[in-house]
């Protein structure tokens, strides 16, 4: 075990995978000499050289398109998109190509690419360095969508992503790149997809949160605890595949559910969790399912503290759910 930040864990995961397998390489803007704008690829260029840590021209569709071609010939590319907000020029490559290669070719052309990208608000990044648009990707069959919330999970999920035979969108909560530190297992530590993490056990209400929202959600449980409300916190970790079993089991126990995410509410991933609960845990529910989310607006700059869910908003929603019955 080594204590490190989330971004260091991402870096460690890539470095170990690259040491173990010469087919693993990294490409993106500023990832080489500069070590990435968030320093996620720090040191890799020096260790693995320019042919495996590739500074690309400034084109997201070129980065993902090239990564697809590399994967078709058996390389294991990790494409870095500098911010999730800048991924849209590559959206066609991701949605029309990457996600569909295996299916449309009857399995002849599996296409294993990991796309790592920092997402989310709380860093004063305004409209174009803050968004959480995970739902777009979750809505595309063929992709897996992963969001770590701890350093250990960042490394473990990233190593699983690199060894997964399918394309993975790996969303890194940039707000907590350095804000959290934690013990990270050394060596080939992998966290299997489709298994939620029980962050905190409780009996009165289930709080579902991922990425940078796990922190404020845990903070909310502390104030709830003082009021005698024991809240359970579940971090799904992978949105696709989703651990429906863990989500349903938690609500069968608590009877109440609050879903938290930074993204706008309408069409957000929280709606999917709510739908799973409505379909599979309806008779266990003692209160309406609540969502604590961003507003249905573009991401604001000056007022981001109002936009983002925080411990207080989450606690309020949990309290209301408990008092409803």
């Amino acid at each position: 075990m080594t204590e490190m930040t989330l971004v260091q864990a991402v870096n460690r995961g890539m470095a170990e995978a690259m040491r173990a397998d010469p087919d693993v390489l990294v490409l993106g803007e500023d990832v080489g000499v500069n070590g990435g704008v968030f320093r996620a690829t720090e040191g890799l260029f020096k260790e693995f050289g320019e042919s495996r840590v590739i500074d690309t021209p400034l084109s997201e569709t070129g980065i993902v398109g090239a990564a697809i071609g590399m994967a078709l010939y058996g390389l294991k590319p990790i494409a870095e998109i500098q911010f999730l907000d800048f991924i849209y020029p590559a959206f066609d490559q991701i949605v029309s190509e990457l996600a569909k290669f295996r299916y449309r070719s009857g399995g002849q052309f599996p296409c294993h690419v990991v796309i790592r990208t920092p997402y989310g608000g709380g860093i004063k990044g305004g409209l174009y360095h803050s968004q959480s648009t995970e739902a777009y990707f979750c809505h595309t069959p063929g992709l897996k969508v992963v969001v770590p919330s701890t350093p250990a999970d960042a490394k473990g999920l990233l190593l699983s992503a690199i060894h997964d035979p399918d394309p993975v969108i790996f969303l890194e909560p940039k707000r907590i790149y350095r804000a959290v530190t934690g013990e990270v297992p050394d060596g080939d530590h992998r966290v299997e997809f489709g298994h939620a993490r029980l962050v905190r056990e409780g009996t009165d209400v289930s709080l579902f949160a991922y990425g940078a929202m796990v922190g404020p959600t845990v903070e909310a449980t502390e104030s709830l605890e003082k009021e005698g409300i024991r809240a359970e916190v579940i971090d799904p970790r992978t949105l696709v595949p989703l651990d429906e079993e863990a989500i349903v089991a938690s609500v069968e126990k608590t009877g109440r559910a609050v879903v938290v995410h930074e993204a706008p509410r309408f069409g957000g991933f929280g709606g999917e969790i709510a739908a799973v609960l409505a379909e599979k845990a309806f008779y266990s529910l003692k209160a309406p399912i609540a969502r604590v989310t961003g507003y249905d607006t573009p991401f604001p700059y000056a007022l981001e503290h109002l936009y983002l869910p925080n411990a207080e908003k989450i606690a309020t929603a949990a309290r209301a759910a408990v008092r409803a019955s």
Partner: peptide
């Protein structure tokens, strides 16, 4: 290689395969 009906996407993919 498998093709989509999308125009042009195969061009940068061909470049990636050449890199490989």
């Amino acid at each position: 290689v498998s093709m989509s009906s999308v125009i042009g996407t195969q061009i940068s993919q061909a470049v990636g395969l050449a890199y490989a």
